[in-house]
């Protein structure tokens, strides 16, 4: 069946089977391979994207369910060639080792900071508690999100100036 989905502000129309999962639609149909396909059981969170502004595990969402809706993936974090503060935070604080969990971690972290600009360590850990880093690099992931929280405000001020 034909579906039209807006991904990172761009509209795509594709003819797909209803059983196609959103993660595979993004990777295989749209070639947006930034979203990773991990456990396939909605446990690991590598595949987290935003669906109408809310983080979801895209291995457990049918692509047809995204028809007429807006999806945001890790490719949509960067704005005008500038990395998002969470991306810079993960770079500054070694928030990734192998990088497999990173796209999902970034999408959830961005959403957390949009709703809670100054989260505590416990709040960050709670927010990513459905996401698994097999390198076990959680300490640095938490530091990266804190870095982003501390630098987002200053960036906004700089832009304003």
């Amino acid at each position: 069946m034909n579906i039209t989905v807006t991904v990172n502000g761009q509209t795509y129309t594709r003819d797909i089977e209803p059983r196609l999962l959103l993660v595979h639609f993004l990777r295989d149909e749209l070639d947006l391979t930034g979203t990773h396909w991990g456990c396939d059981t909605s446990n690991c969170g590598a595949c987290v994207v935003w669906l109408d502004g809310v983080p979801v595990k895209s291995c457990t969402v049918l692509a047809v369910m995204a028809a007429g809706k807006e999806v945001r993936t890790v490719e949509g974090l960067e704005r005008d060639g500038e990395l998002d503060p969470v991306q810079r935070g993960f770079t500054e604080c070694h928030g990734l080792q192998c990088g497999f969990c990173t796209p999902g971690m970034l999408m959830t972290s961005r959403w957390l900071l949009d709703h809670n600009p100054d989260p505590s360590e416990a709040e960050i850990r709670e927010a990513v508690s459905g996401q698994i880093c097999r390198c076990t690099g959680y300490e640095n992931i938490v530091r990266s999100v804190r870095w982003a929280a501390e630098h987002s405000a200053r960036d906004t001020e700089e832009v304003a100036r």
């Binding site: 809310v54 979801v56 459905g130």
Partner: peptide
């Protein structure tokens, strides 16, 4: 129940 991202859905 589950985790925050699953709870969104």
């Amino acid at each position: 129940i589950a985790d925050p991202v699953v709870r969104n859905r």
